[in-house]
């Protein structure tokens, strides 16, 4: 246990009937971190967030938020955080400003303070022009932004975000990350879930890998990527006849075994090998092998899981 831990999850399990949604998960989050819960659909991310935010009682285990037990000190725990759920939880019948006002008032602000906080957030989230319209006219991105804005009315020091970027267009996604990062810059702690490895790797300080309700791995993005191996080179030959020749060339320069499927060749790249791939292209060219695809890819989420589960057995 660490004094800087603002979230402590210890041996949490949750069953829905016979379905073990979360099994014996433990981790802790330090103050000022962006902590990513990474996992595919159905991994148990939402269930974990709902337990951390007092919406669901775990079967076993304990969760402390700033030292407050979510099960026995729910109201104290709730004073420590704010949460944005997986689907936008805003009131369709109210305007953006009214939504913000209601939650600002419920967070304990007086009317003038609530009003200025609402205006402040509308500005920060680029919603001023539609502040007084009902949400029917709002795009998905605007709703998502308002949803996050509502979570920030009380200037939370701990923020839970369940898949904040899923389904967003790239621009809104970038905006979202900007907001999250500026929040962390002011000293807040953010725990978020995502299905995108790349995103987690880019923005999270630490990642916990969840699958089938179990914690598969935890660490910084670098630590995790190192454990699953680095990037992969994937290429596709245009003509099936040149497959063999391509494989020979590839295997000559690459240390790792080359995998073949139909016209596609895949090989893991060790550190430093990424720079040599340009020379490889030239060799294919000289051998007269036409390529329809040539790509260096980060390991996919599937690869990571595969690797993690294989490593365990």
């Amino acid at each position: 246990m660490n004094n800087d831990d603002v979230i402590q999850v210890s041996n949490i399990s949750k069953h829905f009937g016979k379905n073990a949604a979360v099994q014996d998960v433990s981790f802790s989050v330090e103050k000022g971190e962006i902590f990513g819960l990474l996992g595919p659909n159905g991994a148990g991310k939402t269930t974990l967030i709902r337990m951390m935010t007092t919406l669901l009682h775990p079967d076993t285990g304990q969760i402390l938020i700033n030292g407050f037990d979510t099960q026995t000190q729910g109201r104290n725990a709730r004073q420590q955080f704010s949460v944005t759920g997986q689907t936008a939880a805003i009131d369709q019948d109210l305007t953006a400003r009214e939504n913000l006002m209601i939650f600002a008032r419920l967070s304990g602000l007086g009317i003038p303070a609530a009003r200025s906080r609402a205006t402040e957030l509308l500005k920060a989230f680029d919603l001023v022009a539609s502040a007084d319209q009902t949400l029917e006219t709002f795009s998905g991105g605007m709703r998502r932004r308002l949803d996050l804005a509502v979570s920030l009315v009380g200037k939370p020091t701990i923020l839970f975000l369940d898949e904040p970027t899923t389904g967003l267009d790239p621009r809104t996604r970038a905006q979202m990350w900007q907001v999250i990062q500026s929040l962390v810059a002011t000293g807040s702690t953010v725990l978020l879930t995502t299905q995108y490895l790349e995103e987690a790797a880019q923005f999270a300080d630490r990642i916990a890998l969840i699958d089938h309700g179990q914690m598969k791995a935890i660490g910084t993005p670098d630590e995790l990527t190192r454990r699953v191996g680095g990037k992969r080179l994937r290429l596709q030959v245009t003509a099936a006849q040149s497959l063999k020749a391509a494989q020979v060339i590839l295997q000559k320069t690459e240390m790792n075994p080359v995998q073949v499927s139909e016209r596609t060749l895949t090989v893991s790249l060790d550190e430093g090998e990424v720079g040599q791939t340009a020379a490889l292209l030239q060799q294919f060219d000289e051998a007269g092998i036409a390529l329809s695809q040539f790509a260096i890819e980060p390991p996919s989420l599937d690869d990571v899981f595969l690797q993690m589960t294989v490593g365990k057995n």
């Binding site: 935010t53 007092t54 919406l55 729910g74 109201r75 104290n76 709730r78 004073q79 955080f81 704010s82 949460v83 759920g85 689907t87 936008a88 939880a89 805003i90 009131d91 369709q92 939650f103 419920l106 967070s107 304990g108 509502v150």
Partner: peptide
């Protein structure tokens, strides 16, 4: 039911207010 279905109720429940509010 609308408040429950669209998640607004859950949001209320995560505020530091009495659960009955």
């Amino acid at each position: 039911r609308e408040d429950i279905n669209n998640g607004v109720f859950d949001r209320f429940k995560t505020l530091p207010i009495a659960p009955i509010v």
